[in-house]
Amino acid sequence: MMIKLNLNGKSVSADVAEDSLLIDFLREHGCYSVKRGCETSNCGLCTVFLDGKPVLSCSLLTVRADGKTVHTLEGLQKEAEEFGAFIARQGAEQCGFCNPGMIMNAIAMFRENPDPTDEEILEYLAGNLCRCSGYEGQLRGIRAFLDYKKSKGETAICNM
């Protein structure tokens, strides 16, 4: 069936199968940051924003995105670049496979709660699994990023 959505600021129309999942549609449209991890709706690797809210694209029918706005990591360049580079410099992760989903959900958290406590960070990011780090590295990196932004008198959120 025909759908029309806004993908990373561009209007996209497409004829999609009724059981097509959003993750496959996004990858077909060049958004390779969106990856399939667990296939059980648990790992958060496929996180995208649907009308500004983080959702699992592996579990959402593409037809349900009809008329909506979808953002992937590719569409959040400025916010993602600064935060991603900071996390990398901090050595906050190891293999980086979980990184796209983790960055997306961290940005969602910054927008919802610009000054989270450590406990709030752990709770918000509980849906992003990392098999390397035990999450301590990510927590330290995010904390350091928030403290760095605060020291500059800025919030973690960049204007899109």
Binding site: N42, P54, V55, L60, L125, A126
Partner: peptide, 8 residues
Amino acid sequence: VGVQFRNL
């Protein structure tokens, strides 16, 4: 699970 799951 996680926020992304509970949004769906």
